[in-house]
Simulated assay, not measured.
Amino acid sequence: MSVNISYVLVAYNEPWRADELARLVVELRPGIRTVQVNDGQAALRVCRKQPPSFLIADGELAQLDARNLLLELRSHQATRLVPAVVISARVDGASVRAVRPLSPKAYLKKPYSMRDLRVRLNALLPGARTVSTQAASATGALSDFLNRMRSNNAGAPVMDSVQVAVAACTQADDWDLVVLKSKLSADPQITARLVSIANSAGQHHRAVCKTLGQALPRLGVRRALNLTLQLAVQNNASLSDPRLNHQAASSTSCAQRAADLAYWLAGRLKLDTELCYTAGLLHNIGELALLRSLQEWLDSGSELTEDEILCALRERSASFGSALRVRWRIPLRLRQLIAGFYSLGAEVFTREVLVLNVTGSLLRLPLSSPIDELLQDRAVRLLRLDKAILERARRERA
């Protein structure tokens, strides 16, 4: 089906910036018409005369800023569905919450990177995506791209349920820590980032945060919500490719099963349930971070086969996860538990590490296989788990 494209409106305070953005639009969509204005009132007049197919708006437009411009556009039938990108210096939680109900396609931060902006606009502009020689040479082969992204990625996508909760928080001011934890505790990305930020922001504290329940009181409701909002509006916080989105849903479901099973086992053994839950939830965050990077590859205009997706997941998930946990300074004890999910090393380990190892073994054991196969596992023997509790654990898994 053809797309009826009128023109792309670039509304930016600085004329040279408006010209730069207009040239980028034409580079990505050769032949498309662009219109440039340098204040919000001029943008509104142009839109009312003829609605654009797409709007790129400076968040701090003179006379009528991007938020109020969108408010005006959304209140009139002819312009209420105009897709827009806002580029703003204001990325605090309050500013993001104010604009989010107006449904911008993206809310980007100043100063922007032309490379990143090219990727975003190529994915969002109407019309067929283009792959320029410049973009292709910058991206290179998939293997080279993933090598770069391993140490320079944004982490996992944010779950749809958290996206909904974030939208709901714009309508309510009475959230407390208990409610907030219940909304966020199933999301690996939010959990990992808030734990990381809480430790970074609280270096004067002696105790190290290792769980979401420990991080939230240190951050407070308002700051935790602001941080969550910022994470939810980042590039590719939601995966647009159906194949990647399906894989992410499967990985997230696996993370939740691991978290719930580790929590149950830890509870039976009177160990740290929250810590074991967190380790289970984060054990495969590398898979999710890799999928988000593959979405960036697609957004650059490159192609991706099903075999390439599966090969990347098989060969690179572990390295993505390791690099991410180190870069975000996830506490060492939590990292040890996550490593224990996969194998036990020769070093001294805690009973919680053994719980994660048993959790991994139970999840890897086919449901059709007899539970007796696990009775001689090292972690099972050290925890003195009998067949009855393993059977119960398998039922919990199911």
Rank of each mutant, 00 (worst) to 15 (best):
I5T: 11
V10Q: 07
N13L: 05
E14R: 02
L21G: 07
L24F: 13
G31T: 14
G31Y: 05
R33A: 11
Q36T: 10
V37Y: 02
D39M: 00
A42I: 02
R45F: 03
V46I: 04
R48S: 01
S53K: 09
D58V: 04
G59K: 04
L61R: 02
A62V: 04
R74S: 12
V85R: 03
S88G: 08
S88C: 11
S95W: 02
R97M: 12
S103T: 07
Y107V: 02
K110Q: 10
Y112D: 02
R120D: 11
N122K: 07
L124M: 11
A128M: 13
A135L: 12
A135F: 09
A141E: 09
N153R: 05
V162W: 01
Q171Y: 13
L180Y: 06
L184Y: 10
I190Q: 04
N199S: 08
H204Y: 15
H204S: 14
V208C: 09
G213N: 08
Q214P: 09
L219V: 00
V221F: 12
V221T: 11
V221C: 14
R223N: 08
N235E: 03
L244G: 10
A259V: 04
Y263F: 14
L269H: 04
L271F: 10
A279G: 14
N284M: 09
G286R: 06
L290W: 03
W297F: 01
W297A: 01
L298I: 15
D299Y: 09
T305P: 10
E306W: 14
I309R: 09
S322N: 10
R325T: 08
R329C: 09
I330M: 06
P331V: 05
A346K: 15
A346F: 15
F349T: 11
V358L: 06
V358H: 08
G360P: 06
L367E: 12
R378H: 09
A379N: 04
V380H: 01
K387L: 14
E391K: 13
R394I: 04
E396W: 08
